[in-house]
Each structure stands twice: as structure tokens, then as C-alpha cells.
Deep mutational scan, measured.
Amino acid sequence: MPSETPQAEVGPTGCPHRSGPHSAKGSLEKGSPEDKEAKEPLWIRPDAPSRCTWQLGRPASESPHHHTAPAKSPKILPDILKKIGDTPMVRINKIGKKFGLKCELLAKCEFFNAGGSVKDRISLRMIEDAERDGTLKPGDTIIEPTSGNTGIGLALAAAVRGYRCIIVMPEKMSSEKVDVLRALGAEIVRTPTNARFDSPESHVGVAWRLKNEIPNSHILDQYRNASNPLAHYDTTADEILQQCDGKLDMLVASVGTGGTITGIARKLKEKCPGCRIIGVDPEGSILAEPEELNQTEQTTYEVEGIGYDFIPTVLDRTVVDKWFKSNDEEAFTFARMLIAQEGLLCGGSAGSTVAVAVKAAQELQEGQRCVVILPDSVRNYMTKFLSDRWMLQKGFLKEEDLTEKKPWWWHLRVQELGLSAPLTVLPTITCGHTIEILREKGFDQAPVVDEAGVILGMVTLGNMLSSLLAGKVQPSDQVGKVIYKQFKQIRLTDTLGRLSHILEMDHFALVV
């Protein structure tokens, strides 16, 4: 994948999101292997301009796509893939009243899908469409860049269908997702969380590099694949309309690839034109409109599966009536509230959605109805927002919020430890010299600072030695090549209790 991002070429006709291997024109390309080798690009942008032909009021008969309808489940399912879809609609009884809503608040519980998330729908649909058009064949390999849930859905379907599955996901995604993927037989590649989507090191860039190296491999490409919004247009939206008897006044959905909100909203605009569509985008993402909503100094966020630093091709923002931004604290607070007060075992993005819903639905009156999409299960986040310690460490809970008995030293300040200034190293000294210094002084790690004293990161003896043994660096290389740029900081005025929580999850903390 090139470091400079080429513009994806656009073909003359058809839909841009065809499933299957992508040609340089962004659509299915038939021909000899030699032709494909000559024409197939190194990668295709996940934010390529959409060429979708959908228009409100256009006859369904003019759609270029294969459409399906929700099917009634048999008493005995032939395999677990038949437990994807037909998820329950559940009334939220307490939270709406707590925040003064007059309307009825309903939750579409997508964590009841077989793999635990709304992404099971698009995973199965992308595979079925690729099999139907002859792209996927027995023994082929599926590769997908994902925040985890699409990966789980694909790995689940691949396990049943017999495909090899490789999932490329950023490091910030939970260990629970990784464990589930491994249990399903998927191979996992992790990428830096802070890598831009168009960087060769991003999950998108690495996935395309693997595709170019592995024979008979395919990126189904949830960011561009029409099967993504079509899955929701054909099934999720129809289920909502049936469950609500066609009567709903507002739908609120958090947005990642945009397939969920695009597919549902398009069908609702056709069948229930008075329904307002509300999009939820986390602070630090750029999906919301108008652009002024996205202006923030924050560039990272903890909530998973929603928000991006690019506009995915499948996201149709014209069908969203209003956007709201959400933050991590309210997302996790509301997710825990949904679990504790409503018994809905949902993930953090569901918290984002409901946090926005109780604001947006203030305009609705008694007798009206708001539906929220709860995308995934708490299963993926047992060591994250479900953990009091994690919430404390991230600053989303305060010590006084917890009532468990603490040891005698818990409320003492870090400054009472009488710490001395640490050994520091410059980023320009060599790895070999740094190892000598650390061994001589008896230290395992040291902060790396520039000549102005600005902290650049941390270097550890173990990481340097393993990097040297693996051949990633040489003793003569500058130590700046092996620094940890993500590390926890703590102030002298913070409590030892807070430091204790940090050290339970990290090997060190830097006192500043």
C-alpha cells in the first residue's frame, strides 16, 4: 500500500459497493488471473465517493441489488447463522422517566444476534452475496479491517462455511474481542490505534497488504460494500417497522461504517417519512454534520465500534436529520445504567446512543415513540467499562463513588512517597548505550525526554532486548525507535489509591 493515498477510480455505471474482489474501477472485475494482476490496485480507499443510485421515491424494481426479506425461524435451526436477525424490541421503562421523557422509549437489542452484535447481519450478508456472485469459493481466505464486531461476525460465518479468516484490528480494541476471535479460529493482526486510516500501518493498510500477498484472499470491505446497508434496509428496518406496527417518530443510532443508519433510515424514509433520524458520533470522530460539531482538541476516545477519521463510502449522511456528539463518560455511564436499571447487557456504544436519545427525544410528546439501536453486548468489555477499576483509572468514576473498604494508605498523596527525580535518556542515544546505562543503574525503564525536557515516551529494558533479539533494531539504532509513546501519567497530588489502580493494569506510571 502506498504512503500517498491515490484516488480510487470510478467506473461508468453500476453501484460502487459490489461485493467481491475490487477492480481499479471499484466494481467486480472478471477475466484471467493475468488481467486481474495487471488491473487490481494495491488498495482502494474506504472513503471513495459513493456511486449508489438510491433515491427517495425511486421504484424498488430499479435497484441493481439482490434483495432479501426477513424469514421466520424454524423450530430447529440448521446452523447458528440462522440465529442472525429477528432481534427483540424491548421497552426501556426507567431511564426515559428518569430523564423526563414523555414518549415511549424502545430498544432494538442487536446483541441477541448469534455473534453478539449488529455486525453479524452485514457479515453474513457480505459472505452470502460474495458466494452468490462467485467471488468467494471453498478454501478462500477472508481478510477484514475491523474494530472487532464485524470480525467476530465474519469469523463466526467463516467457521460454519469453512473459510480461512484473518482479522486486522487496532490495538485499542478489547482483549475479549481478541479472545472470541481466536476461539472462532480467526487469525488476528493488531495495528497502532493512532495510525491514520490511509497510513500503511493502519488496520485498513495492513489488511490490503495481506490481501496482495495471500492468494485467493478477499477483503469484503464493510466500508464500501453495498451488502452492509442492504442488510439493514432489507431486514433490520423491516423488523423495526413490523415490531412497531409502522408507528415510530424517531430513530437514534450510533454511527461507525454508517451501514446501520443508512440502511434503516432509507427504508424508514420510504415507509415512515415523518420519522426523524438521529445520528450519534463520538467526540474525536469526524462523521457528524455540520462540520463545526467535529471541532475539538480530542483525537482519541475509548468507546469502541463507532466514529472514524474518514467518511466511509457506505455512509449516506443525507438521510440523517440531526447529529449529536457523545463523550466517553456519558457513554459508559449510560451503558452501566442500562445494565443495572433495565437488565440490558449492552456495550458502550449503546450507552452513547441512549445518552443522546434522552436529549433528542425531549421534543417528542406522549403517545409518540423513539427507537434506539443497541449494537453489541457487554461480553466484549468485561475488563473495560464493566470494571470499576478501569473506570477509575480512566477518570470516568471517582473514588467516592465506590463504597468498598480501602487499605490505610489509600488516600495518601503520591508526594508522600518522597520520590527522587528519575533517570532520563535522550532519544538520540543508541539502544546499546541505553541498555548499558539501565543495567549500570539497576533500572528496568526510563523516560525519554528531548533537550527541552519534554517527555516523549518510555523505554524499557525488556522491550529493547526483545527488539534486538527479533532483529527489529540494532544496538547502533537510536533509542527513539523503541519508545512507548502511550503511558499513564500521575500527579504528586493524586492518591496512592489512584496509582494502585493504574499499576494493576500497566507496568509503570510516570509522575509529573
Rank of each mutant, 00 (worst) to 15 (best):
R18Q: 13
Q7K: 12
K94C: 14
I261K: 06
A114E: 07
A231E: 02
G20K: 12
P16F: 03
G153F: 03
I240Q: 00
N194A: 10
T260L: 04
R91A: 03
G256M: 00
D179H: 08
K177V: 00
T193H: 08
I95H: 00
K137S: 03
P145G: 12
G246L: 04
G85E: 06
L220C: 03
A69E: 11
S32G: 06
F99L: 06
P16S: 03
P41G: 08
G258S: 01
T262A: 15
E171I: 12
E62S: 13
G85L: 03
L210N: 04
G162P: 12
S227A: 14
V252Y: 07
N216L: 04
A130V: 08
C275A: 09
T68Y: 06
E4S: 13
K177A: 02
T53S: 09
K271D: 03
Q243W: 05
P49E: 09
I95P: 00
E29K: 15
T141Y: 07
A38L: 13
I152P: 00
A107E: 06
L77W: 05
L81N: 05
M250T: 04
P229L: 07
P145W: 03
S202Y: 05
P273H: 08
T260G: 07
C15T: 11
K82Q: 11
Q222G: 00
N149Y: 01
R18C: 04
S175G: 06
K97M: 07
A237T: 14
G162K: 04
E187M: 03
P273C: 13
P88E: 04
P170H: 00
I95L: 04
E270R: 03
A207P: 01
A207C: 06
E40R: 05
K271L: 10
L210Y: 03
I188F: 06
K82P: 09
A183Q: 11
P70H: 09
W54G: 06
V90Y: 02
D79W: 05
F111N: 04
G57V: 09
R182S: 08
P200D: 09
A253N: 07
E37I: 09
E201V: 04
W208N: 12
I142H: 00
Y223M: 06
H66G: 08
R276D: 03
V178A: 09
G14N: 09
P12C: 04
R58T: 11
I92W: 04
M173H: 06
A253P: 02
K83C: 10
